[in-house]
C-alpha cells in the first residue's frame, strides 16, 4: 500500500472555492493502491523479454539458421510422401538407363527431367490445402509459412543434387558429353520452369494447374527434341549470354518463391 504525501503544483490553475492544496492532498491521499507483489512484475518482465531486439554474433546467427533449417527439413520429411521420393528417384534412374542403353540424346533427357522434382515438390507443398489439413497446420506452433518455405527449399536442394549426380554420371559414360552444355540444359529449365510453375500456382492455388505445368513442360521438351536445331542454336550462344540467362532464371525463381509464399500462406484465410 502506498500512501504518499501528495505534492503538486497548482500555481497555474484555478481551483473551486475553498479547495486548498492541503485539502486536496489530504483528500486524494485517501485513495490508496495495494501494489502487486514481485511475481506480477516478473510476469510483465518475462513477456517483455520477447520483444527485446536480440543482437548476436554472425557465427551464432549462422549456427542458429543452420539448426533451424535442419529442424524444419526434418519435419518436412514427415509430411512429404514416400511416393514422391521413390518416383523422382526412379525418374532419374530411368533417364540414366535410356541414355546408357538406348543411346537417347543425353541433353534432351536431362533437360526434360531436370525441373520435375521441384515442380512435383510444389504439389507436395499444396497438398495440405487440397486434403483439408491446412487449417490445422496453420494453428500449430511452427507456422505454415515456415513449413512451405522449408519444403520448397528441400525440394530445390534435392533437385539440384539429383541433377548434379545425373550430369556426373552422363559425363562419365560418354566422353562426348560436354560439362558446360550439360549444366546449361539442366539449370536453365530448372530455374525457368520452376519459376513459372510457382507463378501459376500462386495465381490459381490449384493442384491441377500444377499438374498442367508438368504436362506442358513435357510437351515442350518433346517438341524441342523433334527439332534439334533449337538445341544447337542454344548451344551456340557464348558463355556470358548464358550467364545472363541463368541469372535472370535465378532471379525469377526467387521472385516467384516470394510471391508464392505470400499468396499461399500469409493471408490467414482458409477457404
Amino acid at each position: 500500500m502506498i500512501k504518499e504525501e501528495k505534492k503538486f503544483d497548482i500555481e497555474e490553475m484555478d481551483l473551486p472555492e475553498g479547495m486548498t492544496t492541503d485539502y486536496l492532498s489530504d483528500l486524494f491521499s485517501k485513495y490508496t493502491v495495494n501494489m502487486p507483489d514481485e511475481c506480477e512484475i516478473e510476469r510483465v518482465i518475462n513477456s517483455l523479454s520477447e520483444y527485446i531486439p536480440q543482437k548476436t554474433k554472425w557465427y551464432e546467427k549462422l549456427y542458429k539458421n543452420f539448426k533451424y533449417f535442419i529442424e524444419r527439413w526434418n519435419i518436412s520429411l514427415y509430411s512429404i510422401s514416400h511416393a514422391y521420393w521413390i518416383f523422382t528417384l526412379c525418374l532419374y534412374i530411368f533417364g540414366f538407363y535410356i541414355v546408357y542403353s538406348n543411346g537417347v540424346n543425353p541433353y534432351i533427357t536431362i533437360m526434360l527431367i531436370s525441373p520435375l522434382p521441384f515442380v512435383l515438390g510444389i504439389l507436395e507443398v499444396i497438398k495440405g490445402r487440397e486434403e483439408g489439413v491446412l487449417e490445422l497446420e496453420m494453428s500449430c506452433r511452427i507456422s505454415n509459412r515456415e513449413m512451405v518455405f522449408s519444403k520448397l527449399t528441400l525440394a530445390g536442394i534435392y533437385n539440384i543434387i539429383l541433377n548434379t549426380l545425373l550430369s556426373i554420371m552422363l559425363i562419365n559414360i560418354n566422353e562426348n558429353v560436354d560439362i558446360l552444355k550439360v549444366t546449361m540444359v539442366c539449370l536453365t529449365p530448372f530455374t525457368f520452369v520452376s519459376a513459372v510453375s510457382l507463378y501459376i500456382c500462386s495465381k490459381t492455388r490449384g493442384y491441377y494447374s500444377c499438374m498442367a505445368c508438368i504436362f506442358i513442360w513435357i510437351a515442350i521438351s518433346f517438341s524441342i527434341s523433334m527439332s534439334p536445331k533449337y538445341i544447337n542454336r542454344f548451344f551456340s550462344i557464348d558463355f556470358f549470354q548464358y550467364l545472363l540467362i541463368l541469372i535472370s532464371g535465378v532471379l525469377l525463381l526467387i521472385f516467384n518463391t516470394k510471391k508464392f509464399l505470400k499468396t499461399n500462406v500469409l493471408e490467414k484465410e482458409v477457404n
Binding site: 493502491v33 501494489m35 512484475i41 518482465i45 517483455l48 527485446i52 531486439p53 536480440q54 543482437k55
Partner: peptide
C-alpha cells in the same frame, strides 16, 4: 541499452515505472 538488446536494462525500466503505471 534496451535497443542494443539488454534485458537487464528492460528490467530496470519496468521496475522503475511499474508502480506509476499500475497505480
Amino acid at each position: 541499452e534496451i535497443l542494443s538488446g539488454s534485458k537487464s536494462a528492460m528490467e530496470l525500466l519496468v521496475k522503475k515505472y511499474y508502480n506509476i503505471v499500475f497505480s
